[in-house]
Design a protein around this nucleic acid. Structure first.
Length: 762
DNA sequence: GCTGCAGTTATTTTT
DNA sequence: TAACTGCAGC
């Protein structure tokens, strides 16, 4: 077996250990996922049955990559296996489990859907409105966050405790009980689960149903868990329940990278609990860092040492490369910070040192991406945001998915969406009537009420017509879903459905109206129809891929698999290749690495976030510090840190550099008013050689039309923030077709949109 | 019942 | 700044 030659001594020891219980403590960049991957391959080559191995990762992206790498390793060793281990997130694992077992609860059926945050908020809003509390922001918010906390602990409304109401809270235990139980009741009645339900119900079934437990406890010889430091109590409980007396467990993690305690993560599990529960536990420590230069590691080590609650360890660069010093600047305001980051990126790329894709810009919170985006666009730097406004969160996409979801599980929240896309002339009054009928008639879904009680609802002719179109195409689609022969036919059934129900017509109308008005949106990345086409394309690709079924055997995926895949997608999963700078929050950056990394907005009340600062809780600050540590250790060659000044509208006063800078051994530059003038004077966009004339005038707000639209002709060059440089091949009114390099190809753009502009010939 | 406008208000992190 | 709310007019 050629595994040891690819790993260092400790990695090799971990990958090939025969201990039943193995803990790998692995610092940032020490090859933890690599080691785990080799261990999976090793176990397979040792003869363990693939479908008796489960590997839990933090994101689907890592799961996919790991699967590929395991396959590669097996191939290199000319080893063939029948079947493949399940590599999945906790949530994905629970979904597969519940798919086969949920019926036995007698509350849900196997066609359940998973609700996203949007639907969840809508549901809460409904409850608060009915309680007459919707105007009390404080009340709503604190109840929701209390429920969040209780649910990550795995408790349902029956298990509330007086302590769940914080002292001086604006709600009572009775309020909490009422909202929480209504929330659960509504989900149940619609056959809907939220993310936490996936975990809780799995634990409940395993704990309370002996038949289910006995069956599943025997299923696995080996369970492996990546990023174990971010495992919460409920997930740990779940692991224990799936372990039989013979099941081996391998966990990998770095306590210093615990950044999800707000979601219940406890790094005490990897630090202490595991040892207590499994006295035979073997521990391997990986501390040779293969990612960063020593200069970067020195700053990161220095910072994380300030945490009191930790096991001391120092990362050392395996390459012994000292590298360049960590760069730090304090800028006049956040716009100039973004501008300087953009300029530096331009220099790095212009100097031939780096590709755009070698660079990442990391920030504490999503809202900070706006300023960066604007400056990057000004400097014509292609970028991609991970998280933030995700593709699947766009309105049309959610509408399209609602139509599809209805065919699997006709829940009211999807139905309410389709009533508005296109609008079917049904307003608040009719809706209230329908909700009343729902109870009266003993129906389970609004979809039925609107189909069967049209008389009682006194619908207008137009509404009847629109609903008629929907129900006809819906029924035909249901039939097609039962009969299709292959994935092509399934795909065709979907497009027919969306066409016949009037959705496509609505989407095209939307685009027309928006371009006519010349207001919002218009570039190819934002055209509604194009987005829906992209969704359909994704769908088609998904159907022609291989899918690991609940039984561990590969099968052809269906619509339901697609919808679940989307529901459980993470921000990292949307990462596409391409020569673009990556923008993301620190949380999303976990597990990734880039040659050049910018960590921006290192300010008090931003990073650390104001919440952590104002609670005066050392745990909260320690978590922020770990997050900063994660951000810094993403960098391979160079690390650029920055903070900014200016007025802080939210907290009052002006922004100050983050304490983490001093703690990392970096001296914040003394601020002098004169410096600021200088910054402001010399760093205006006028000094930007890349900015086209019409953009210099004013920084255009996102999504607005420029006042002077450019004239385009075939052959002109165009720069797009996402697709790079392309050539105009067709001009049609205010629309142009541009051919971009692969993988983007031909795109239709609407002139005047900010995401692109004409490239001036030199 | 739907849409557009104006004014207000709130900003962690995510499977 | 953008997202949301309330209100007026169609």
């Amino acid at each position: 077996m050629d595994i040891l030659s690819k790993l260092n001594a400790s990695q090799g020891k971990a990958a090939t250990s025969s201990s039943p219980y193995l803990r790998i403590i692995a610092g940032a960049g020490t090859g933890k996922t690599r080691t785990l991957t080799y261990r999976v391959a090793y176990l397979l080559m040792k003869g363990l049955s693939p479908n008796r191995i489960v590997c839990i990762t933090f994101t689907n992206k890592v799961a996919k990559e790991m699967r590929q790498r395991v396959e590669d390793i097996l191939e290199e060793n000319r080893f063939s296996v029948s079947g493949f281990p399940l590599i999945s997130t906790f949530h994905g694992f629970c979904y597969r489990f519940l798919k086969t077992e949920i019926d036995s609860l007698g509350i849900y059926n196997r066609n359940f859907s998973i609700i996203d945050d949007d639907d969840r908020n809508r549901l809460y809003k409904e409850i608060f409105t009915e309680m007459g509390k919707k105007d009390s922001k404080d009340f709503c918010r604190s109840i929701v966050s209390a429920i969040d906390r209780i649910k990550t602990e795995g408790r349902y409304p029956e298990e509330l405790r007086p302590k769940d109401v914080p002292v001086g809270s604006c709600f009572t235990l009775a309020d909490l009980e009422k909202v929480y139980s209504q929330y659960q009741d509504r989900l149940r009645s619609q056959n809907l689960l939220d993310f936490d339900d996936l975990l809780i119900l799995t634990v409940q079934l395993m704990r309370d149903n002996p038949a289910v437990r006995e069956h599943w406890k025997r299923k696995f010889d080996h369970i492996l868990v990546d990023d174990f430091q971010d495992t919460n109590g409920l997930q740990y409980q779940l692991l224990l329940l799936f372990m039989g007396p013979e099941t081996a467990l391998t966990v990998v993690g770095d306590p210093d990278q615990t950044i999800y305690t707000w979601r219940g993560a406890k790094n005490d599990i990897i630090k202490n609990t595991l040892q207590k529960d499994f006295p035979a536990l073997e521990t391997v420590v990986l501390d040779e860092n293969y990612r960063s230069t020593q200069n970067i590691l020195d700053r990161a080590n220095c910072l994380i040492k300030k945490n009191r609650d930790r096991i001391d360890k120092d990362l050392q660069a395996a390459s012994h490369v000292v590298g360049e010093k960590v760069d730090y600047h304090d800028y006049f305001d956040n716009a100039s910070e973004a501008r300087e980051v953009s300029r530096t990126i331009r220099q790095l790329v212009g100097g031939g040192k780096a590709k755009f894709s070698d660079i990442a810009v990391i920030y504490r919170s999503n809202y900070l991406s706006n300023v960066l985006e604007r400056q990057l666009a000004l400097y014509q730097i292609p970028y991609r945001i991970y998280g933030g406004m995700k593709f699947f969160e766009r309105k049309v996409i959610k509408d399209a998915l609602a139509y599809l979801r209805l065919a699997i599980n006709p829940d009211d929240y999807s139905f309410l969406r389709i009533l508005q896309a296109p609008t079917k002339g049904i307003g608040e009054v009719t809706l209230e009537k329908a909700k009343a009928l729902l109870r009266q008639q003993g129906r389970s879904h609004l979809l039925e009420v609107f189909r069967l009680d049209q008389e009682a609802l006194k619908l207008k002719a137009a509404s009847r017509l629109a609903l008629g179109d929907f129900y006809r195409s819906y029924d035909r689609f249901l039939l097609a879903l039962r009969q299709y022969a292959d994935s092509d036919e399934l795909y065709r059934a979907i497009t027919t459905y969306l066409e016949d129900c009037g959705f496509f017509g609505y989407v095209r109308r939307l685009d027309r109206e928006q371009t006519d008005r010349g207001s919002y949106v218009g570039s190819s990345g934002n055209g509604n129809e194009e987005n829906v086409q992209e969704l359909l394309h994704t769908l088609q690709q998904f159907f022609s891929s291989e899918y690991l079924g609940e039984d561990g055997k590969p099968r052809t995926p269906d619509l339901e698999d697609f919808l679940i895949e989307i529901a459980l997608q993470s921000d990292q999963d949307t990462i596409e290749d391409g020569n673009q700078v990556s923008l993301m929050t620190g949380h999303v950056s976990k597990g990734l690495e880039f040659p050049y990394v910018f960590v921006t907005g290192l300010n008090e009340n931003i990073f650390p976030t104001s919440h952590a600062v104002s609670t005066y809780s050392s745990e909260a600050i320690e978590e922020e510090r770990r997050l900063a540590y994660v951000c810094m250790t993403r960098a391979q060659k160079r690390l650029f840190l920055s903070s900014f000044g200016g007025n802080d509208f939210i907290h009052g006063g002006s922004y100050r550099p983050s304490r983490f800078l001093t703690e990392a051994g970096i001296e914040p530059v003394q601020k002098k008013p004169a410096d600021y003038q200088a910054h402001q004077g010399t760093r205006r966009p006028s000094s930007n050689p890349f900015a086209p004339a019409f953009l210099k005038k004013a920084e255009l707000p996102v999504g607005r039309k420029s006042t002077e639209a450019e004239k385009y002709a075939v052959g002109d060059k165009v720069v797009h923030t996402s697709f790079g440089i392309g050539e105009v091949v067709l001009v049609e009114g205010n629309k142009i077709d541009v051919l971009f390099p692969e993988p983007f190809g031909r795109k239709r753009l609407v002139v005047g949109f900010k995401a692109f502009h004409k490239l001036k010939e030199e």
